[in-house]
């Protein structure tokens, strides 16, 4: 049927709106840069560089993860806007499978946040990180995978909410803890046991870790990645599959 067309046009709509809303683009690029240069720059005076990585460089993969986390979540949660302002009904009464709508939405989030991650990735030389073409491509591919799983997670969350008022709840109780417990700002292995346990259960941890694996040439050391790249990618892919399936099931016909 026309499910592929539907997926394509759902993504196209998101990209059009993304390009049109200049303020959204600017603020979504500004947030990671503020963290990278202001928070990272400040803390680098406090944290001594170990294993040859400056703190600003250490948090770079985490900042990529943050860019993806925020933009993919925003993009997916925008489905609550569509619900509240009715546009979702236009899609729901079309002869299109629910799963296609979910996949279309997840790919929308993937596209938008991968573009933003790519822009941040271009900033790397400014903090002294020189990533070769091969690593750049690998990093971008990982960004896409992480974007897809976070978007799917956002869609699953969005299926439980009817109005946009719930957004601050998601922001404070899900997005912020996910970010801080992802190993973005500090190595997971150095965390106290309780926080470490939470980090290990956080899917974003593996995304950030995969990015650490691909951005840094060095593999070991206290500031290096916590898990092997293979483990990271396996976790990201299985999480994506489970989340997309759950989001489809949760968005099924109600009433």
């Amino acid at each position: 049927m026309n499910d592929l067309g539907a997926i394509y046009v759902i993504v196209l709509r998101e990209l059009k709106k993304f390009v049109r809303e200049k303020s959204r683009l600017v603020s979504s690029i500004a947030r990671p840069l503020i963290w990278l240069f202001m928070v990272g720059g400040g803390l680098s005076r406090l944290v001594t560089a170990r294993s040859g990585i400056a703190y600003t460089q250490f948090i770079f993969p985490g900042i990529l993860g943050m860019t993806i986390l925020f933009s993919a979540m925003f993009s997916s949660i925008s489905i609550i806007w569509d619900k509240e302002f009715g546009f979702l009904k236009e899609i729901l009464v079309a002869p299109v499978r629910r799963s296609s709508i979910i996949i279309g939405k997840a790919l929308s989030g993937t596209a938008v946040s991968s573009i933003q991650a790519a822009i941040i990735l271009l900033v790397a030389p400014a903090i002294g990180l020189h990533i070769g073409p091969a690593r750049f491509a690998l990093t971008l591919a990982i960004c896409m995978m992480v974007s897809f799983s976070i978007s799917s997670f956002g869609l699953l969350l969005a299926s439980f909410y009817e109005s946009y008022e719930s957004f601050s709840v998601i922001m404070n109780f899900i997005i912020m803890p996910m970010f801080f417990l992802s190993g973005a700002m500090y190595p997971v292995r150095m965390l106290p046991p309780a926080l470490k346990a939470a980090s290990v259960l956080n899917p974003l941890t593996y995304g950030v870790d995969a990015l650490k694996n691909s951005v840094f040439a060095l593999q070991a050391g206290p500031m290096g990645p916590d898990f092997p790249l293979g483990t990271d990618i396996a976790v990201i892919i299985s999480c994506s599959a489970v989340l997309v399936f759950a989001a489809t099931a949760a968005s099924g016909r109600k009433g």
């Binding site: 067309g5 046009v9 059009k16 899609i91 079309a94 002869p95 299109v96």
Partner: peptide
């Protein structure tokens, strides 16, 4: 664009 979107989801 609203109509084009509609066209796509109806093939």
């Amino acid at each position: 664009e609203n109509l084009a979107f509609h066209g796509y989801i109806y093939g």
